[in-house]
């Protein structure tokens, strides 16, 4: 394995870790907060209804936007750190 290969492998596993982390949050807000965990969140009221309803109709969308920008920012930084960015 050359130095270059090791660097590339490290970059790829850093990317995979970032993806897995982001997708856990992605699933938590939509499938968790918005659907499956809604009964558990029913005690927290938001404007005439509960937190689960808010996650389903507002919260998950807002989180998705934040996630994509976070991922893009992190990855574009990683590209440079591993010297794999485009010229």
């Amino acid at each position: 394995m050359t130095e270059h290969d090791r660097n590339a492998a490290a970059y790829w596993s850093a990317n995979l870790r970032l993806i897995v982390g982001s997708l856990i949050v992605w699933a938590l807000v939509s499938y968790g907060g918005g659907i499956l965990l809604r009964p558990l969140l029913s005690g927290i009221s938001v404007g005439g209804t509960d937190l689960g309803f808010w996650f389903a109709q507002q919260g998950s969308i807002l989180t998705f936007i934040a996630l994509i920008f976070f991922y893009a920012w992190r990855m574009n930084k990683l590209d440079k750190e591993f010297d794999l960015h485009e010229e």
Binding site: L23, A56, S60, I61, I68, Y71
Partner: peptide, 18 residues
């Protein structure tokens, strides 16, 4: 029917990362 709201936006997360 909140499914439409989450479903049609959450796909962009997958697009951006996968």
């Amino acid at each position: 029917n909140s499914t439409y709201l989450m479903g049609w936006t959450g796909g962009y997360v997958l697009l951006a990362m996968l």
